[in-house]
């Protein structure tokens, strides 16, 4: 009974999915490119998940859009740039180096230099 009920609820949702949301591309190389890109695109509905893992409708539709564009011959980075143009850097889990993101990229090196400085000064004190 519960299963029948669950199917009744799920059926309309399944019927409306975009064509390539959960269907792999026939070319394995293109599918691999699309999959890799999907894992680095943020779901705008369930933020914190990648669209590859998300069950949200819009995530499925974005997967379909990515597969269609890759199939049509676009490179993954072109598709990423197209999405960033729509939603801003926020959509990508691979933030580009730019005005707002350079501290993010510089932080590890700055912290490393501070760490070395602290280590050096404490070793020197011991001697």
């Amino acid at each position: 009974m519960t299963i029948v009920f669950a199917l009744l609820i799920a059926a309309p949702a399944l019927a409306q999915k975009a064509p390539l949301a959960d269907t792999q591309l026939s070319d394995p190389a293109q599918e691999a490119q699309a999959k890799a890109l999907m894992e680095t695109i943020r779901c705008v509905e369930c933020q914190g998940q990648a669209i590859a893992d998300s069950n949200a409708d819009i995530a499925g539709n974005m997967r379909s859009l990515i597969r269609e564009r890759i199939k049509a011959g676009e490179s993954p980075e072109q598709v990423r740039a197209w999405l960033i143009q729509r939603y801003g850097d926020y959509i990508s889990y691979d933030p580009p180096l730019g005005g707002a993101t350079w501290p993010l990229w510089a932080a590890p090196f700055v912290l490393l230099v501070i760490g070395i400085a602290i280590a050096r000064s404490s070793f020197r004190r011991k001697r």
Binding site: I58, M62, S64, Y87
Partner: peptide, 13 residues
């Protein structure tokens, strides 16, 4: 049907 225009507009819901 497949949110193509929704995504093209940068709409998230």
């Amino acid at each position: 049907k497949a949110s193509q225009v929704q995504i093209a507009l940068g709409s998230s819901g």
